[in-house]
Amino acid sequence: MSTDFQQARVALGIRLRELRGRTSGRALAAQLGWTQSKVSKLETGRQTATPEDLRAWAEATGHPEAGEELLSRLQGLESRSRSWRRQLAAGHRPVQDTLTTEYERASVLYAWEGSMVVGPLQTADYARAIFESYSELHQSPRDTEAAVRARMERQRLLHDGRQAYHVVMWEAALYSRICRPGALAAQLDRLAGTIGLDTVHLGIVPFAARVPIPPGPGFWILDDRLVLVEDWHAELWLDDRDSLGVYQRVWERLAGAAVYGDAAHRLIARARAALDLA
């Protein structure tokens, strides 16, 4: 969990404590039908409130006018860290639609991915395996086919000529057996076919390359306004100057260790040849 996120959650908890006033935590918990530990965790920043929690808190403490303020604080907090539990409450399709909106606003997109092929370059079968694995992990509604269609529809942005994609991947992503061998072979063929596209500049960091910084989690930089970082529990949306600067420097260092063109094509071909398709 990011320090900024936790600080914002603690600040929200302090505000909740102010609104509670002289009412005891035990009495408030009883009034709301909650456990006392939930009240304590919300006030100390150890648990993230839901919008329903905040509305109920404002009403129960006699400050209904504070409801919008609390929701605004929560929105600001979640603009940085968006839990997968909440994002996937209705399945993967709404998440894909939100990403499409952000991608459409961008002119230049930079990506780093160390574990799998990035979404805009995925085949349908490969994307299907990804969505199914994450649905199982997060125990979210399975709308796999709708999510796959949304991801495939977004790939039109690769060909309309309005955007430039600068994608850097670790060689490990070429070998991740997250789908059946035949589907991975087709994915590698698709990836090789993107080399030479006017809108895609693909680099691959070889296993043997000296990297100036340890490869970390995958992320996207959209123009110079937004960074999207995926973690297991949440997706970070970062738009402050300091965070943007850090991720831009990370991307530049990893991109400097990558190979491109024919050299990248050879790495993909080597991974393709290593597949046992018998």
Rank of each mutant, 00 (worst) to 15 (best):
H159E: 08
H233Q: 12
R20L: 07
A258P: 13
Q75H: 08
I130A: 13
L71Y: 04
Y165G: 02
A172Y: 00
Q75G: 10
L174Q: 02
S79H: 07
Q87C: 06
Y260F: 15
S72Q: 08
A11Q: 06
I14L: 10
T199Q: 03
R162D: 15
D143I: 06
H138D: 05
G13L: 10
A208P: 13
A255D: 11
E65M: 07
Q187T: 01
G13V: 09
Y110K: 03
R86H: 12
D276G: 14
V259F: 02
F219L: 05
A90W: 05
A146Q: 11
I213Y: 13
A208G: 14
V95W: 15
H201Y: 00
R85E: 14
T123P: 09
R9W: 00
L158Q: 06
S133E: 15
Q139C: 02
E18W: 06
E69L: 02
P217Q: 11
R190K: 04
G218D: 04
L267A: 08
V10A: 14
S133M: 02
L28C: 07
A263D: 07
L121P: 07
R154L: 03
A8S: 15
R210L: 06
G218R: 13
F131G: 05
R15C: 04
E145M: 10
A111E: 13
G25I: 01
L16T: 08
F219S: 11
I14H: 11
S140C: 08
T3F: 13
L19D: 06
W84H: 14
E136V: 12
Q139N: 08
W220D: 01
Q87P: 01
S133R: 00
R149P: 02
Y103G: 04
G25E: 03
L88A: 05
K41S: 08
S176E: 14
Q75V: 02
A209R: 07
L121Y: 11
G76S: 07
P64E: 01
S140A: 14
Q155A: 10
E113C: 04
G45R: 06
D223G: 05
A11D: 07
G62H: 04
D242K: 13
E59D: 15
Q6R: 12
W112F: 09
L184T: 08
E104G: 00
A258W: 14
F207S: 01
L12G: 13
R85W: 14
D4N: 11
W220K: 00
T23Y: 14
G91V: 02
W251P: 02
R82F: 07
A186Q: 09
P94G: 10
L236N: 08
Q36K: 12
V39M: 01
Y165K: 02
G76C: 06
D53A: 00
G193Q: 13
S115L: 10
Q248Y: 03
T194L: 10
G196T: 14
E136W: 04
V246T: 06
R272V: 02
H92S: 13
A29E: 11
G203N: 05
L42T: 06
Y247E: 04
E68W: 01
R46S: 00
R20M: 08
R55L: 10
T98L: 10
Q87Y: 01
L121N: 03
D4A: 15
R210H: 13
A60H: 03
